[in-house]
Every structure is written in C-alpha cells, then in structure tokens.
C-alpha cells in the first residue's frame, strides 16, 4: 500500500447526500480516491458532477454523509470544528474562483493571513521566495481593490503557498480570468509542484487548464468515471465528449 501512504489526501467511500426522500440528491456517491503527494491533480466533469462537493469535503469545508476523508493520516470526520479549522490553517491552502482576498488587508497581509491567524511568524525567506515566484514583488503594499483580477489571483496562490500546506485546493482558479492571465496562474501552480514539491488539487471544467495537471480525474453523477495520466487538452476534451454522449444516451 505504498501508493496510499504517499497520498496527501484521500477519500474512502465518500458519499454526500442533500435533501431526503424524493428530493434526495447524491452529490458524490461512494467515491474512493487518493491525491498523491507532490503531484498536480485536476478534477474534471460537467456541471453538477460533484467536483466542488468532493473538493469541499476533502478540504474539510463540508462534511460527508458517509465514508471517510483523510488529510495525511488524519481522519476528518473525527475532528471538532476547532480542530478542522486548525487543520485547514496549517495543512491546507485554498484558491477560490473569486473573492479570494480580504479587501481591508493589503497584498502582503493577505498572503500571510493564515499564519497571522495561527499566531506564527512567517518564514521570511520562504515568503520572499513565494512572492518572487508569483511575481508580486512591487505590489505587496496594494489593497485588493488596486490590483487586477490576475494579480489578485496571484496573491491568492501566494497565500495558499505561504504556510507550506500539505495540499492546496484550487476551485476553478482561472474561471474569472482571460486566457492569458489564466495561463499565468496555471503556470505558477505547475511551478509550485515542480519546483517547490507542492501537492495541488484543482477543480475545473476547462480542458486547457486540466492539461497543466499530472493527472485528470473525471467525475459524472457523483462518481469517479475515469482517470487520465499526463492529460492534454485534446485527450481531456475527447473524454469529456465521450462522457456527455454516454450520459445523454443513458438519459434517453
């Protein structure tokens, strides 16, 4: 079981049910998946496939109806709200699609926010390295309102990296950006994996974005349907078309 031991996070039989009776919706249904340490994994799938739910559950933002989630070797279901909060703060980084930053804080304060919340001193050399990597050196004292969308997202990536988390979850990080700035952000994420050894899980529905990842996992109707190693935009797009055809065929 060496594969499992090197997983940064994993889900076992994870199921999330919303509503009950006739209105019951299984957002994710018996999902078992491991996210390998030091790799960049993309979670793909059409709208409503359960991508975000899976991510939220693995990241400790949401709780499962049944099944287990581990970050490292910690089982999240047994944690109190406070322990979950501390876990998020210390071992998980987040990049959201939008509204990633606190408007009252400047860029640098936003980057070090998780550390400040934990009451730990930031490692200056590491922060400088991160800031240099994402290319924000001259923008550190700016407020979010004074930054462009791309710059804001770079600050968000830097924040996610600042605490050297075990794993970073990115939820459609390029969803609100044009393709050029989107490509920049994805490059940073790629570099974080290659050069800093970071583990990243990214939810996206964009095949081009998925092509930056080491592996792409395909979700449909709350289940893992396929996994592609070394995806390219082409292979991802083909898979997705195949799934859609299959889904439509089934529903017919």
């Amino acid at each position: 079981m060496t594969g499992e031991r090197s997983a940064a996070a994993r889900a076992v039989g994870a199921t999330k049910v919303y509503g009950s009776g006739a209105a019951e919706v299984r957002a994710i249904d018996d999902v078992t998946i491991a996210f390998d340490a030091g790799r960049f994994t993309a979670i793909m799938g059409p709208s409503g496939a359960g991508k975000s739910t899976l991510m939220h559950c693995v990241a400790g933002l949401d709780t499962l109806s049944s099944g287990q989630v581990f970050v490292g070797d910690v089982e999240l279901g047994s944690l109190s709200d406070r322990q979950l909060t501390v876990l998020r703060r210390e071992r998980i980084g987040f990049v959201f699609q939008s509204f990633n930053l606190l408007p009252a804080l400047d860029a640098e304060e936003n980057i070090t926010l998780p550390l400040t919340l934990a009451g730990t001193r930031p490692d200056r050399a590491w922060i400088d390295a991160v800031v240099t990597t994402v290319g924000l050196g001259d923008r550190l004292s700016h407020r979010p309102a004074e930054l462009s969308g791309g710059q804001r997202q770079r600050v968000a990536v830097a924040r996610a990296l600042a605490s050297r988390p075990q794993i970073i979850f990115a939820d459609e990080p390029t969803g609100n950006l044009d393709s050029r700035t989107g490509a920049e952000i994805l490059t940073f994420l790629r570099e974080a994996v290659d050069e800093l050894g970071q583990t990243i899980v990214m939810v996206t529905h964009d095949p081009v974005a998925a092509a930056y990842a080491d592996a792409a996992v395909f979700l449909a109707d709350g289940r893992v349907r396929d996994r592609v190693e070394g995806p390219t935009a082409r292979t991802v797009l083909d898979r997705m078309s195949a799934f859609e055809a299959e889904t439509m065929g089934r529903s017919r």
């Binding site: 909060t85 998020r88 509204f99």
Partner: peptide, 14 residues
C-alpha cells in the same frame, strides 16, 4: 463572503 473566506483559511469561530 469575507467572513467565510477567513474561516476557510483558518480563522476559528472564536
């Protein structure tokens, strides 16, 4: 949203 973000990146309820 701001408060939610703070919680997500590790602020406790307290």
């Amino acid at each position: 949203r701001e408060l939610g973000l703070l919680r997500a990146v590790g602020a406790t309820r307290g």
